[in-house]
Amino acid sequence: MARTKEFDPDAALQAALELFWARGYEATSMADLVEHLGIGRASVYATFGSKHELYMKALDRYLESRDPRITEELSAPGPALPAVRALVRRFAAEAGTDGVRQNGCLVTNSATELAPHDGAVARRVELSWEQVETLLHSALSRARAQGELPAGRDPRALARMLLVLMQGLRVVGKASGDPSRVRDAAEQALALLD
């Protein structure tokens, strides 16, 4: 007879996500996971597979919980440019908090730590970026069609610039304790939408 799980796999996955997000993949050992999740090593392997498989499941969970909010913000009816501005400002605000080091964005962290040599991570990162770029492009195209954005502006190029900016805000926010750095950069980029 198979034993029943004596832990909540959903709660364990969330705990693993938080640990990977705070420490990164390489700095998180299997012993760290066992301790943080409060379950045995055999249970971790039986439920989630290897450390890499657990990381991928945690990254998938992160993507599922983050991207829908961006979709809602950029797809709302009405003027599109205020939604784009609000999104960039939210990224800047989340990235820059006085004197408090942030975990950054798990997608951005994965891009810098693992994507250069891990194809599975690279594919998830690229898919996430493509989704955000597409949403920005759509919102900026609507803004141009509604007369909010000057006719000569290229919505695709602006969407790419904002995507790169938002990812950069996460990196700088994680490494710097100076929130004015990310706020100033965001505002300068948003000035290009005028």
Rank of each mutant, 00 (worst) to 15 (best):
E148P: 01
V132P: 02
W21D: 13
A27N: 12
D60Y: 07
T97P: 00
D32A: 12
G147N: 06
P82H: 01
A95P: 00
A16R: 09
F7H: 06
R69N: 06
R142G: 05
L74T: 04
L158K: 03
A22E: 13
T134D: 04
R123N: 09
V107I: 15
L81T: 04
D194V: 05
H52E: 11
A145F: 04
D67N: 15
L33Y: 05
P79D: 11
Y45P: 07
E148F: 02
T97F: 10
L127Q: 07
V121W: 01
T4K: 15
A15V: 09
R153F: 05
A159G: 13
D8T: 05
L135I: 00
E35C: 02
D60V: 08
G168F: 08
D194N: 10
V44L: 14
A76Q: 10
D98W: 12
A12G: 08
E133C: 10
K5Q: 15
F7G: 04
S50Q: 09
L169W: 07
R3M: 09
R90C: 07
L149A: 04
A27I: 04
M161S: 15
R144P: 04
E35N: 09
A27V: 03
E94K: 03
H36V: 05
P179Q: 14
G49A: 08
Q146R: 00
R153A: 10
N103T: 02
R66I: 03
P77L: 07
E94T: 01
R144C: 00
G24K: 02
A175V: 13
A159M: 13
G40D: 10
L165W: 15
A122S: 09
R170P: 00
L169M: 12
Q131Y: 02
P79R: 14
L165S: 10
A185L: 13
D178R: 15
G78F: 09
D67T: 15
S50P: 03
G168K: 06
S176E: 14
H36M: 01
Q188I: 08
H36P: 01
S75L: 13
A111P: 02
V34I: 07
L169C: 10
R69T: 12
R101M: 11
A16H: 12
C105M: 03
F91A: 12
G147I: 00
T97H: 13
E64G: 07
W129E: 02
R85D: 04
G24E: 06
A120R: 02
V44G: 06
L158V: 05
K57P: 10
V172L: 13
S43W: 02
G38L: 00
D60W: 03
S43Y: 05
